[in-house]
Design a binder for these strands. Structure first.
Lengths: 343, 343
DNA sequence: TGACGCTGCGCAAACGGTTGCGCAGGGCGC
DNA sequence: GCGCCCTGCGCAACCGTTTGCGCAGCGTCA
């Protein structure tokens, strides 16, 4: 069995020309004679020649591979995001090197190192929940490996990022709830150190104040995303002297746990208390009690945009090497969606 | 800004030694003096030297990258599978190049080509539903790029594969149902051309016959996995002269659609008719009516095993180049799981 | 008829590492 | 004092491809 992939050298040998001639013939160089060109291309087709991308990328210092690091691919949000990334990548002939951080900054760092070793052209990343140091990522930029963040983006300005404005989204959601008569609105937020939590809380406070209601911090609970923690938050809220009549949960996963607990406590979900959430995941359509309203965060679109920005950066790099640093920051709308249906 | 990643050459120049010395010093070669070794390693650490995996893989004809092609990452089954693959990969310092086929044989073929171009060391793939030609994959084997299939595996024997024995699983499930007194058991199967469908049907027939009941093909319906098609199947079953008292659906996604429809038809799910399914996805724990019993197919474990087999193949390739062809075929148990709970 | 330009191709360096081999210098035994 | 081995390092080839440059042969024009 011929166990070697065909190379340009083989073609050269069999046609008694030099490798450079073959190389040029394949790329349709004007200085190669028509006869030679035809012969080369013919033989290349016959033996199923495929250029060795590794050799090319090695030579050209460009691999058409971009790294993608996500917290958890099993979260539908991220699996949709990577599909968006992939779609845009294919469009421009890029391939993606994939890794998960499992929301662990250490693993995230190791993945970044691995990607650097593999010399990806660029890196698209949604940060782990606990990440608060960015040296490993800034180091990449230093070496001209662009980094594009999406959804879970770093707090500073000198970065390319695409994300949803959850502050606005939250304000809108509060407005919607209040206009429907729900005035005791609770928030089950995530850990304080997450910027996502901060956005939600800011939006919550702004949304409530804007409607001339006073903010009651007794209605703001926290979860570390474990089922137990979410259940505890619900119990706490139900035990308030004046329990809420609307609960905003951090995301649809928290929502599902929250609803489960509320039911166990004999709450008539979406009647006694309405539940609203973030993410608008398709699976909630199959659950017993989907959130009445969810904030769509467009994971597919975010992924797609992130990749498009990446392509732009990579092309620019080739063109005007030392371009002035302009950071692409793209804020996507976070829109209210009612009654999320099936897939 | 120093925009170049540090190379071995730089170290050599700055230390006034040859590149070969640096290379050997870094790999702790015994013939390099202790002083030199220390100096080199010191400087390497200082300037954050990281070997260029592309150059190495180019030279060594080995990249420590394996391709992974899945139908849809958004199906929890596959996102869990890729996590298993990733875990095993990290263990052995491999990285994964990712792509989806979207259940389209054409896209699958293109992804395979892309991976070949990138010269992955091996390919792990779960076939698209419609794939019935395997030339593009067999071509890889010809060039010594091993292919390991999992879950959706090809029908022939000359392939490395890991999968669940759904035939046995189905027989077990039927046995369980009959022992509980459910004797009119329906099956909502997938398209005929899928081997997964064939397995289920064979298991269905065997399971029913084994219990001395006669097989009623009126109780076997099909779905193309669209919600409409599944709904139609349910309607058909409910309209039988003797409707079923148990329904086996192709997988948990079909289950969810099926239950939705049954409810609309005022069936008391899991009372009038019990629903059982395949896959045992965590999300069903959050749905209104999870399947009473589901066949666990261990996606994480399948992925992990597939990667381990891959590693073994790649190591063997290095060791005994022309080893006799032995195909790894790993059949995992498909176990019955009751009352699947939350995450 | 000599200078010049065009056509068609080959030579060789380069990308960043690895590795077989060679060589110099020193220590050792006989 | 000669041969031998050991230590410590450099030289150069190699992996597959691209690309700047050089060169030969031929036609053209002054």
């Amino acid at each position: 069995m011929d166990n070697k992939l065909p190379t340009i050298k083989e073609i050269a040998k069999r046609l008694n020309v030099s490798v450079s001639t073959v190389s040029r013939a394949l790329s349709d160089h004007p200085r190669i004679g028509l006869r030679t060109k035809m012969q080369v291309q013919q033989l290349a087709r016959e033996i199923n020649y495929e250029p060795n991308a590794k050799a090319i990328s090695f030579k050209q210092q460009k691999s058409f591979v971009v790294g993608v690091i996500l917290p958890y691919i099993r979260e539908e949000f991220f699996s949709q995001a990577i599909s968006g990334i992939e779609a845009a990548a294919i469009e421009h002939e890029y391939t993606i090197l994939f890794g998960q951080s499992h929301d662990d900054p250490e693993k995230e760092k190791k993945m970044v190192e691995a990607m650097k070793k593999q010399r990806v052209d660029g890196l698209i990343i949604s940060l782990s929940k606990q990440t608060n140091r960015y040296e490993h990522l800034e180091a990449l930029e230093k070496y001209n490996i662009p980094v594009v963040y999406f959804d879970r983006v770093p707090p500073f300005a000198h970065a390319h990022k695409v994300y949803c404005n959850l502050f606005k989204g939250t304000v809108d959601m509060i407005g919607w709830l209040i206009s429907r008569g729900y005035k005791r609105i609770a928030l089950i937020n995530g850990p304080d150190n997450l910027s996502a939590s901060k956005e939600r809380l800011k939006g919550y406070i702004e949304g409530v104040s804007k409607k001339k209601l006073k903010v009651d911090m007794q209605l703001v609970e926290k979860t570390d995303f474990s089922k137990e923690s979410t259940h505890a938050a619900i119990i706490n809220l139900l035990n308030r002297k004046q329990p809420p009549n609307a609960i905003i949960t951090f995301n649809d996963y928290v929502h599902m746990d929250a609803v489960q607990c509320a039911q166990q406590q004999n709450v008539r979900v979406n009647q006694d208390i309405v539940f609203v959430s973030y993410a608008n995941l398709p699976i909630t359509g199959y659950t017993a009690f989907p959130p009445l309203v969810s904030i769509e965060q467009y994971p597919y679109g975010q992924g797609e945009r992130a990749m498009e920005i990446m392509i732009k950066l990579l092309n620019k790099k080739a063109a005007e090497e030392s371009a002035q640093k302009v950071y692409h920051v793209e804020e996507m709308p976070a829109t209210l969606v009612m009654h999320p249906g099936g897939r």
